[in-house]
Design a protein around this nucleic acid. Sequence first.
DNA 1: GAGCACTGC
Length: 681
Amino acid sequence: MERRRSRSPRAAPTRNPLTQKPYSSNYTKLLKDRKSLPVYEALLQLENLLKLHQVIILQGETGSGKTTQVPQYLAGLQKKVACTQPRRVAAMSVAKRVAEEMDVKLGEHVGYSVRFDECSSESTLLKYLTDGMLLREAMKHPTLDQYDIIILDEAHERTLATDILFGLMKEVLQKRRDLKVIVMSATLNADKFQHYFEGAPLLSVPGRLFPVEVFFTQVAEEDYVAAAVKTVMQIHAFEDPGDILVFLTGEEEIETACRNIKKEANKYGESVGKLLVIPLYSTLPPSAQQKIFEPAPGPNTKNIPGRKCIIATNIAETSLTIDGVVYVVDSGLSKQKVYNPRMRVESLMVSPISKASAKQRAGRAGRTQPGKCYRLYTEETYRSELQETTHPEILRSNLTSVVLTLRVMGIDNLVKFDFMDPPAPETMMRALEILNFLGALDDEGDLTELGSLISEFPLDPELSKILITSERFKCSDDILTLCAMLSVQNPFLRPKESGEVADKAKAQFAHQDGDHLTLISVFSAYIREGQRQDWCSHNFINPRSMRAAAEIRDQLLVKFNKLGLQVLSEERGRSENIRKCICSGFFTQVACKEKSSIYATLKEKQCVAIHPSTTLAFRPEWVLYHEYILTSKNYIRTVSIINPIWLLELAPHYFELEGFPDSQGKRQLESLKKSRAKNKK
DNA sequence: GAGCACTGC
């Protein structure tokens, strides 16, 4: 019966071909909405193009429905489909929505896969996953045979993982003529993708956003925070009801702006509506982040409606969507990561955003009704100083992990690997050099056994290395904790108003040998106290960091056991063993005291100071640091005391010292070497 | 003696 009916060209099937069950009423209701999406009419065209081409570029703005409709349409053709997303929340929520639209149970025909949460099965035809997760799958199965179609969504964001997948796709498409790839992107750089995948046809679908009127300032603003405050007050006093979203660059600025807006609003009294001012940045505790979803305040005594005003970082550009925003105020700036391969340092710099970002920010005003966007820069600045698109992440990152990943996927000629934007040769050289010193690559640049072990862990190669070495130093229990703690946001909270109390709380955990041991002791205390939220808040510890660390530690432990490594811990010589073990991975990050509190990094001879957040009670001769940051000064942060002899024992190859600049540290190491040689005789 | 855009495995 069903067969005959589904063959009929006119009547739509009443039973779901995937489950053989009749469609629910919810399905019918959702189908109506789906049919009104701009992308709906393009689906057949897409199917036909796929018969002729291996790669297709699909360009569509927010609201076109491409993320939900394209993958499910292809899965409906009985193809195994993977669709990547840059963020885990998106992968999970889109999968849930699509399962509902397809009238199947989430985790069966439609599933998702993100870190810590695998929701798919044998029967899964369509899987949404984070781009990083697909990369992990590709490390195991470099030709991705488990899929017929791979969709790279949000390609315009050019995340590190998506960029590597682009290059990988080029290789795999040669080996698998049956594989199809769809690159889905917002506009602006679709032609770049088309050029990269030579001959790939471009399919465009319109978006569905309300119009947003854009205003520029007439003259350049000197103080953009003050300008933002002024603009918010003007909107609040003179514009129609609707919430305001302001884009600034960071925590401090945002808190200042919030204070000033509240102060200004108070001056106006009842002549304007109530204004709810909410800061939004990623390091805020989740409870504070939830405030952005609170409704705008009601009318005041003069019956003027209230509104809310959210002052946010880039987090509101893509990661968090706030409905009801009608006005956007855009500073035109954001903090961006930059990488200096010569100094081997990643730092954050306030930089102008791209035109693509400016457009994205403006679009945040048009999600529910027509909106307005006030740009705190001139049209001339926009035209001449803003780049078309944001510099892809791969050009701004340390590539140690990336190079290792490529090697594991069997890419042996890195020079020939077709990057959409090739990274600086110096950055690649740095990565190869460090991987060689870690023992992950041999002198020919080939992957070693240790290298493939290192690549198994979801960690930076240096951290994986110390985790593996921890077996030898009988401190794996502690190093598992340390790796987890170094992978999460700084767990120590220090609110300005209670700085001293917070410092005292932190002092309870301080370990005399350094910040690494302090991190371990915080985690131990957290577990000992039953992982309690109230314990965290009482001790100025960020509970989110601790929960994340516990989860990561569990994941690392499972992997650790699976690889046949042994969890050992020995009390005798514990601190020394831990610090030696850290040296086995971070020997390139050591500094020697020059005078009083000034240090010089050994390899680059950069003058640095130990960051004031350290728990070290004095300034030792030699330290190992976890990160080198450029802020008001050059700082090294997360620092522990080491004995320079360990360096010679653990990384003799690196400390041959030929390429090192002359310094007190180098001379000390040289004389240590001499006396060691003498003792051996 | 002071500061951490945002993701992701």
